[in-house]
Nucleic acid binder design. Sequence first.
DNA 1: TAAATAGTGTCTCTAAGACACTATGTT
DNA 2: AACATAGTGTCTTAGAGACACTATTTA
Lengths: 250, 250
Amino acid sequence: MNEQEFLAGYDPSAYPATAITVDVVALTIREGALHLLLIRRGQPPFQGHWALPGGFVQPDEDLATGARRELAEETGLGGDRLRRVHLEQLASYGAPERDPRMRIVSVAHLAFAPDLPDPVADSDADEAGWLPVTALPSRQLAFDHARIVDDGLERARSKLEYTPLATRFLGPEFTIAELRGVYETVWGHPLHAGNFHRKVLSVPGFVESTGVNTERGGARGGPRARLYRAGDARLLHPALLRPAREETIR
Amino acid sequence: MNEQEFLAGYDPSAYPATAITVDVVALTIREGALHLLLIRRGQPPFQGHWALPGGFVQPDEDLATGARRELAEETGLGGDRLRRVHLEQLASYGAPERDPRMRIVSVAHLAFAPDLPDPVADSDADEAGWLPVTALPSRQLAFDHARIVDDGLERARSKLEYTPLATRFLGPEFTIAELRGVYETVWGHPLHAGNFHRKVLSVPGFVESTGVNTERGGARGGPRARLYRAGDARLLHPALLRPAREETIR
DNA sequence: TAAATAGTGTCTCTAAGACACTATGTT
DNA sequence: AACATAGTGTCTTAGAGACACTATTTA
């Protein structure tokens, strides 16, 4: 039997029914707090519960494409706005009983977005919105989404250490103080302004100067800050390490 | 309609047929070279090509369980031997045309194993073995397995930097020189013996002394070395960073 | 005896972090 | 005027890497 003959006689339905979904942990920063895109489910299972945006992968699309499509559908965004969102694969979740309907493996993705408008609910959902991660309805998340969110947050914290992806939470131009704000928000503790400033400028390719300053100083005073844009580095070297916490090591 | 009614009327077969497989990038070190577990396929598609060990996930098993089962089947190992193998999820691969039979998403895993006996071929394969990664039949790997192997190797190199997983390539007791050999093999370049020695002992929880020395010195001379076992750290702090390569940063 | 290796000592350089300070903007 | 902030200077300390050296074991 050659390959052609084999494929002609191959019956996909002979295998147990499984399905693939993509789910997205989409993060943004609003008013100095980390926010997560959630959908309140309008249908069973977990009707009325908050859940990650996501859905079944279409037959012709790649996993990353499906995740970006879901993100576009739930946020109502498209074009350039969406293109500035960073999207990466997070991990896959496939415990046999994680979905009561059938065997569903979810390929979770992680997204970093600049401040976006409030999402518009689509047909599947009666509500959608950016919720602050510090006040999540923790055990009320559908499926195993609480676990996925935890993994996504840890990945995000870690990614800020060795990649320049913090800039993806900001607009095309930003000040060093705004960049520091991203780190402080995601990591959850304050950083030393002076040392942070010097450190960022010393890492090759992290940011590049526009030569322009902000129009005004800070809201409560201070000089006008220089504006920067993201540089061409894909990795930070040396990295910006979080202060070590003994618990995470053992 | 409540949740119960919904589930009773739910028809899984209404969704397009997809399948989930697990594939394993299993690495070990033999005679100072990094080796990869490969199977020569006995059936179409890609009959006669080398492929990663793997297969369909069973209805009742978790993804990690499936990966460990596949590894057990292909290596013919079980029990304690298998329990010492490190296994983690790598990434999922789901390009629509990656498998000619049907839509198949593969959840790839990465394994670090101490030197294991040669695998025994099972019914699906006419050949199985540990192949040196430096001499892989690169474009002859089935499916998108060349890409998966590349991702696995990069993950392995990176993991040695900030975790103590290098010890998983060794037996329960090892010398600092053997541990250095793992790093040199995986990273592909020599390290300074003296500095490596001091560095490893200075990282809390990386290794702990057994108090015992080897029976003999090195094959070509030298004092007998102290034996260590893996410590209780899960992360190395400070990390053992690879010398920076400019290419990977930009 | 010659050569290889385990392990330690020491020096230099980079980088992180603490602290101080100036200049410039705000209410 | 009082205060907040951008950006820089300086000092201390930890850690990486280069090099040297001793002691121990092999063929």
